[in-house]
Nucleic acid binder design. Sequence first.
DNA 1: GATAATGTTCGATC
DNA 2: AGATCGAACATTAT
Length: 279
Amino acid sequence: MPELPEVETMRRDLQKVARGTAITDVEVLDEKVVVGEPDVFIEGLVGKMITDFDRRGKVLILRLNDGHALLGHPRMTGRFFGLKSTDALSRFARVAIHLDNNKRIVFDDIRRFGRLEVVSQAALDEAELLRNIGADALACEPGHVVQALRKRTIPVKVALLDQKIIAGIGNIYASEILFRCGLDPRTPSYRVTPDEAAAIACETANVLAEGVKYRGTTISDYRTMDGARGNYQDRLMVYGREGGTCLREGCDGIIQKIALAGRSTYYCNKCQRKGRNRK
DNA sequence: GATAATGTTCGATC
DNA sequence: AGATCGAACATTAT
């Protein structure tokens, strides 16, 4: 479930728990969530110090002092918990990383779609988890969005979910971004004007930064590292508000729910149009 | 019991 | 060849 704001919150919390610590032991409780051989994964981590905490799109990048990196992608239900070494694991715990500060980082994942991967510095860009990741959404540039949308026929909302175009936007924030732009999510990408594409770049950064500020959106499974819920769900303008009145000042439209590329999409039937000066 | 879920990938089709 | 679409993955919560 996590999108960029949720993963960024994980990054910050992980940093608090694990900065400058060394990994003393790794338990792979479910081989499915580890890319490659579990033995190789474990050997790549034990005895290493965690030096830096980065993120690209929805991928966490923990740098190790030997030049390798631990990558993590939570996909739909993955989350990280910071536990004392005596705390019990949940039944969804998949990997436990023991640290020399008497704490554990636990990767917990109900649906088992999430993945953890260890790669060398040199192989970072070819890593399974980073292979299809483009420019990060928080550094989204107008010119880049204009170019990316220009020749595509897919609905603009579907384009926003393409991690190769912009990395970090997910299904909740995509609807929120287009609401702020006043753009109909079904608009074919090639019909989005350069000005509208620039607005998308701007609102993408705005919405995601706000999501980070509120520590993410919890609708059901997402939890921060200490088990708390995010707070952005109370600020959503359209996602999950099917049938509700538009919250834009002066607009009395009704929020619609449709499916695009198989994903729920929410928009206001009055103030989100298929391109300005068009209809 | 049917349905939907904050994500990505792959095979089939256009 | 490249773009697009739907199914698949796995499991829970409602």
